[in-house]
Computed example of a mutant assay.
Amino acid sequence: MSGKVEDKVREGVGRVQEAYGRATDNYDDRAEGAARKYANQASYAVRDAADTVRDQVSSNPLGGLAIAAAAGIVLGYLLGRR
């Protein structure tokens, strides 16, 4: 859970840095702030998706196993076609 909080804080820092770059007309600060903001938004989304998958698999382990097996078969088929 603390990883999500860190991502939100870093996203806020990116927003502030981007706003500072816009206010001072400094392209470097604006670009770095936007990059930091979007990278942390993506990190938050990945952590959230991983938590959701973990919760779903813990509540229904056989369904999770079936999905993992199907994904493995499809991946093996796609890689074996070379």
Rank of each mutant, 00 (worst) to 15 (best):
M1S: 14
S2Q: 12
G3N: 15
K4G: 05
V5K: 12
V5N: 07
E6D: 12
E6Y: 06
D7G: 03
D7Y: 04
K8G: 05
K8S: 13
R10G: 00
G14V: 02
G14P: 00
G14Q: 02
V16L: 15
V16N: 12
V16A: 15
A19M: 09
G21P: 02
R22W: 04
D29P: 03
R30K: 15
A31Q: 14
E32G: 11
E32Y: 03
G33I: 01
G33Y: 01
R36K: 14
R36C: 05
K37V: 03
Y38W: 09
N40K: 04
A42H: 11
A45E: 14
A45F: 09
A49F: 01
A49M: 08
D51I: 11
D51W: 02
D51G: 15
T52H: 08
V53A: 13
V53T: 12
R54S: 05
D55R: 15
D55M: 11
Q56H: 11
V57H: 01
V57G: 04
S58V: 08
S59R: 13
S59N: 14
S59E: 15
S59V: 08
P61V: 14
P61Q: 14
P61S: 14
G64R: 05
G64E: 03
A66L: 09
A69S: 07
A69F: 00
A70V: 00
A70W: 00
A71Q: 07
G72I: 00
G72V: 00
I73W: 00
I73N: 02
L75Y: 08
L78A: 09
L78V: 13
L79D: 05
G80P: 03
R82M: 06
R82Y: 12
